[in-house]
């Protein structure tokens, strides 16, 4: 080969090699997980590799303690860990889809999925896998204390005598006073006491409205609720409501604002904010509810002058039988939170 052609050939070969190199050298594939769902997860028979255990048998939630659970399977599955307080009836459910339970996905800090809150009690922990009905594993742990809830903007938890800060409105005497008021007959959400309203609808006179209770802000120590300056959409009012699944009970939770700046709640003069729809109570036991001040149409000025919380017992008259049935509910742990609903 003569020199010129030699160089031409060299350049071409170099060009070829360089092109291949340039095309492929910057092409390190960043291969991730295998494509598609795991075949083992999809098709392998389930096997339990490690049984359910807890990181500790007792846990002091009030001191910030946590407990986590361990278990392992041969494939990733949808698992459900259910913790139930043996006294309170509180329930915590942790769910996941994984190969194992460990600190990353099965840690419990004392919160409850379903109120009331756990207290110092024995708790039964159950691990189940819906797709594997034959599988189940349980263990017991002891909760030494209740996980404290935030008290910054607490209205009342009814643990102490409210005195004149609660005014019962028993209109047309439809409330059953023997079964109305601060009680501790069944577990409260926090502590021992709650406030229950029980009423017998009168079919002849306003069968819809049974009675109410006004809880003044002064129950928390000041005429107005001491809330930080924040958008009304960021200020939540939370409460727990108990119901016994009896039909036809409805509730309305309202906020009273001192519109006449008297410094006290004056029914008929102060503004009452309520949600458009009443709560139709169908559940059994305790349940958490919340709404924001903005949901009620309140402004920041209104928020600064909250003087009372009004809780009204209503009867779903249209659907009541004749004679109408008694209706009731209880409330506990009324509190404001900022930024998000109460986490319990």
């Amino acid at each position: 080969m003569d020199q010129k052609k030699y160089f031409t050939a060299s350049y071409l070969a170099l060009f070829l090699v360089a092109t291949i190199f340039l095309t492929t050298s910057s092409c390190d594939r960043d291969l991730e997980d295998p494509a598609g769902p795991s075949l083992i997860d999809r098709f392998a028979d389930f096997e339990s590799v490690d049984t359910l255990t807890a990181s500790q048998n007792t846990v002091d939630f009030a001191a910030g303690g946590t407990v986590f659970f361990r278990a392992a399977f041969n494939k990733s599955v949808d698992w459900i860990l259910r913790i139930e307080g043996m006294q309170s009836g509180a329930v915590k459910v942790i769910e996941g889809f994984d190969l194992r339970l460990d600190e990353s996905n099965a840690t419990w800090n004392g919160t409850a999925t379903t109120p009331p809150l756990f207290r110092d009690e024995e708790c039964m922990v159950t691990l189940s896998i819906p797709e594997e009905p034959s599988y189940g594993d349980t263990l017991m742990i002891t909760s030494l204390s209740q996980r404290p809830l935030p008290t910054n903007f607490l209205v009342t938890d009814f643990e102490s005598d409210p005195g004149a800060n609660i005014i019962l409105g028993n209109f047309e005497f439809k409330l059953v006073l023997a079964e109305t008021g601060r009680r501790s007959d069944f577990p409260a959400v926090v502590g021992d006491f709650y406030y229950i309203l029980t009423g017998n609808p009168n079919p002849d006179f306003n069968p819809f409205f049974l009675g109410l209770v006004d809880i003044k802000s002064s129950i928390a120590g000041n005429p107005y609720m001491q809330l930080p300056q924040a958008s009304p959409s960021q200020i939540y009012f939370n409460w727990f409501m108990w119901h016994d699944a009896s039909p036809h009970a409805m509730a309305s939770v309202q906020i009273a604002v001192d519109s006449n700046d008297s410094g006290d709640f004056e029914d008929g003069q102060d503004a009452i904010f309520s949600s458009e729809n009443n709560l139709m109570l169908m559940h059994t036991g305790w349940r958490h509810y919340s709404f924001t001040m903005a949901d009620l149409g309140m402004t920041s000025d209104d928020v600064e002058k909250i003087v009372a919380i009004r809780i009204v017992l209503l009867s779903d008259h249209d659907n009541q039988p004749t004679p109408p049935l008694q209706v009731r509910f209880a409330v506990d742990y009324l509190t404001f939170t900022i930024g998000q609903p109460l986490s319990f």
């Binding site: 594939r29 291969l31 295998p34 494509a35 598609g36 769902p37 795991s38 075949l39 083992i40 999809r42």
Partner: peptide, 8 residues
């Protein structure tokens, strides 16, 4: 294969 399907 270069990348496994449903498995490594």
């Amino acid at each position: 294969e270069i990348l496994g399907q449903g498995t490594e």
